[in-house]
């Protein structure tokens, strides 16, 4: 048993101490590494960190948020130079306190804001909503009926709805026919489709509905299905979503009613998180606690790009 333990320990040593000793060490801690989006953040971060010559340790807790606290404590004990967090800071406050007590800065990578997070790097939900709402207003020439799909109980989505409300209210000839909060327990597509079918039935005249603005992609996809199933796909109803998930990109690339969505730059968020860490390590005091990475409007012209 003893010799075996030594063998295991030797392997661990080889795996663990391969990096240079003098470089800055930064720990990236996430419960969500297995999710595709997270991988893009981490890849972007690691690429930038490699340019900066850092020693990066990526730690995944396989969905366990409590273990994120434990791992923050461990890397604090280990004495890393900075921690990058990709988890809800409100749930790991105990760990953030430990890092703060030891004077180790924590940067959020699309994590959420928290007093103990030096800065959170993320996409600007207000700006994303403005992109698609303005796209809709311009596309329909500033007049016509618009159906909105919103979800106010979830703050990151609620801010999107606020902006779209303002853009549509600023056009006197745009009328918001309905402001729908779909049931999202099944993912959001099916209920959005059902709700949209009801709206279509209530507004049977061609042209009565000029556009559908959705605060994220699933309701846009549901609305698209409803419009096509009702045989009104040729009416020119403009649909927009937000997030540009693969299913939405496909629909947009086909050139049908679903015309636009907005893509977050996940790798860019990772790289910007590394730049933020670099500023903190250089001793800079950050004024902005939230750092936004630009997003990109996705239309039929560029939907196939990724």
């Amino acid at each position: 048993m003893q010799t075996i333990t030594q063998m295991v320990a030797g392997a661990a040593l080889a795996a663990g101490l391969a990096g240079a000793a003098a470089a800055e060490t930064v720990a990236v801690i996430t419960p969500y590494l297995a999710q595709p989006g997270t991988q893009f953040y981490v890849d972007g971060f690691e690429a930038r960190a490699a340019e900066l010559g850092w020693d990066v340790n990526v730690i995944d807790t396989a969905g366990d948020v409590g273990a994120v606290i434990s791992r923050i404590e461990d890397v604090t004990t280990q004495g890393v130079d900075a921690i990058v967090l990709n988890a809800d800071p409100a749930q790991v406050g105990a760990g953030l306190q430990t890092a703060a007590d030891a004077g180790i800065p924590v940067v959020g990578m699309d994590a959420g804001s928290h007093p103990l997070v030096a800065a959170n790097v993320t996409s600007n939900g207000y700006a994303m909503a403005a992109e698609t709402a303005v796209y809709v207003a311009n596309r329909i020439g500033g007049e016509g009926g618009v159906v909105m799909f919103v979800f106010d109980p979830f703050p990151p989505v609620q801010v999107r709805g606020v902006i779209a409300d303002a853009v549509f209210a600023n056009h006197p000839d745009i009328e918001v026919i309905d402001r729908i909060t779909p049931d999202v327990s099944d993912g959001g597509i099916a209920d959005s489709r059902a709700q949209m079918e009801a709206v279509l039935a209530a507004n049977p005249d061609p042209g009565a509905i000029a556009a559908v603005w959705a605060a994220w992609d699933q309701p846009a996809l549901g609305a698209l299905q409803a419009i096509e199933a009702a045989g009104r796909g040729d009416e020119g109803i403009v649909i927009t979503g937000i997030d540009a998930n693969p299913q939405a990109r496909d629909a947009i690339a086909q050139g049908g009613s679903f015309e636009a969505s907005v893509a977050q730059d996940f790798a860019g968020i990772g790289a910007a998180a590394a730049d933020t860490v670099a500023r903190l390590l250089a001793g800079e005091e950050l004024r902005q606690k939230v750092i936004y990475v630009p997003t990109e409007l996705v239309t039929a012209a560029n939907a196939g790009a990724e």
Binding site: M1, V8, L13, G16, V58, A62, S70, R71, D74, Q78
Partner: peptide
């Protein structure tokens, strides 16, 4: 094991493999 391997910066997935292997070793032995 979790604490020490994290501090030694062993990859999370390698850590899981090591923990499982050590359980097997102990129980098997």
């Amino acid at each position: 094991l979790d604490n020490g391997l994290t501090q030694m910066r062993v990859d999370s997935y390698v850590r899981e493999v090591l923990v499982g292997a050590i359980i097997l070793l102990a129980v098997g032995a």
